[in-house]
Design a protein around this nucleic acid. Sequence first.
RNA 1: GCGGCAAUAGUCUAGCGGUAGGACAUGGGCUUCCCAAGCCUAUAACCCGGGUUCAAGCCCCGGUUGCCGCACCA
Length: 494
Amino acid sequence: MTSASGGKEARKDEIAELARRRGFLWLAFEIYGGAAGFYDYGPLGALLKRRVEEAWRDFYSREGFYEVETTNIAPREIFEASGHLESFIDRAVVCKHCKSFFRRGGGIDVSEKCPECGGELEAAGEFNLMFQTRIGVPKGEREERALKKSEGYLRPETAQGIFLNFQRLLRFNRDKLPFGVIQIGKAYRNEISPRKSLIRLREFTMAEAEVFVDPKEKNNHPRFDDVKDRKLRFVPGDGEEEEKSVEEAVRSGIIANEYLGYHIAKVEEFLDGIGIPEDRMRFRQHEPEEMAHYARDCWDAEFFSDRYGWMEIVGVADRGDYDLSTHASHSNVDMGVHVQPQVQGEVQAEAGKAKTKIIPHVIEPSYGVDRIIYALLESSFYKEQVGNEKRNVLRFKSEIAPIKAAVFPLLNRNELKIKARDVFQKLRDEAIFVEYDDSGSIGRRYRRQDETGTPYCITIDYETLEDDTVTIRERDTMEQVRVAIAEVKDALLK
RNA sequence: GCGGCAAUAGUCUAGCGGUAGGACAUGGGCUUCCCAAGCCUAUAACCCGGGUUCAAGCCCCGGUUGCCGCACCA
């Protein structure tokens, strides 16, 4: 009865079409012709995204990490310090004649001739990928300095806001390491050619955790034992894909330290928890030249898309002390932390023992929320044959489904409708997100909910009027159980 | 950014230089005791801007968006 979806082409079109039609995802500015790289979330998309973000918050709250919310716009000097002004830039040249592309910095400049055909070169797409804006009205407009001082940029990652507040956050954590801080928010990158629906956006949502740790303690994560035996698929920068336990990966040096290993394992746990299939997930290490300017090591959690192949949905980077050190030197603020000397993880608390001062290292899991939404849509979508009819179904986990349940009167008759409305309102009052529908046949209503991923449908029939029981129909199996109205809530949340 | 292809109701699509048609979906009604059934009915479209022409959804030019390839993805 149940079969996997059709061919790849059919599948991708149907997902985009379903997402549009059912109100998950719409091209932004559509009535004015749209703009590449910008999408709006419709009602169901916004709900789905909210559920994922809430699951993420809960997940990292359990790690003891507090959430902050920092600004989207920052003055120029922040990005001078962070290195984004200098490094977050695309420098390519193209030959006017033969259209060959060359990366600049690889020894090729516009003043030279094309190595392929000797034609004239021109700069192509040479600009910083950050959106520039102006903060306030520059005084003395003519003065270059005033103009430069008023330059601002939209953040290309949420992380900087956390680094800028490091001293405050350290104090908040009573001067102790390690600690983690999380943030969910928009980031902006003026991509040259955004494509692939939610995969490359110009405005997107990131969920990032910055974990600050004493560099000497990176191989001493207090809860490493919780994750050490988990087997993950790793693709090391210089090797073949292999399945290994997290502990093996760290001990054999594939993963540089326990902190990185622990957070890679946590990423897998989160993605698995929201329903990304394990067999479509792997962890791939960046090649040295692929690494961002701030990273000393980086592992991507990749999702296998039928449409696009392997694609990054989360990056876990070891940023070392890059960010705190660079902000320390640019701002002249001390980012050092006094730590007790430790022996094998035990604090030596003897009085008088001199503390040492270190710059913490940062381990950063950085989630692309929109890409995760895409991965969920694609991996949850199934086309099935039921009797002579087809059905589209989004098999979201119940916890992240936009709508929890729908309530139907079996027939379009007053006495059933009244009762169904009662049950519907009762569930709403219990803060469960439910829908009511009495249009068309019962089968049609089931199909509608299947396509929006609603895990449960509650149907009121004549038996309900006699004994206050209803049927609950489960989305994936299409099977029904009869449950007393008083127990519906628990049944939905089980 | 470059090149190729494409763009018609919510969705999928038909269309000849001369009245824009269908299917599904959606709203209303009938029917229906559990999976897109049936009947009646209603709403609803030529991406944007120029040009050619008596007349353009159709031909030409430019733009936008999408798909594919190249490049890019710190």
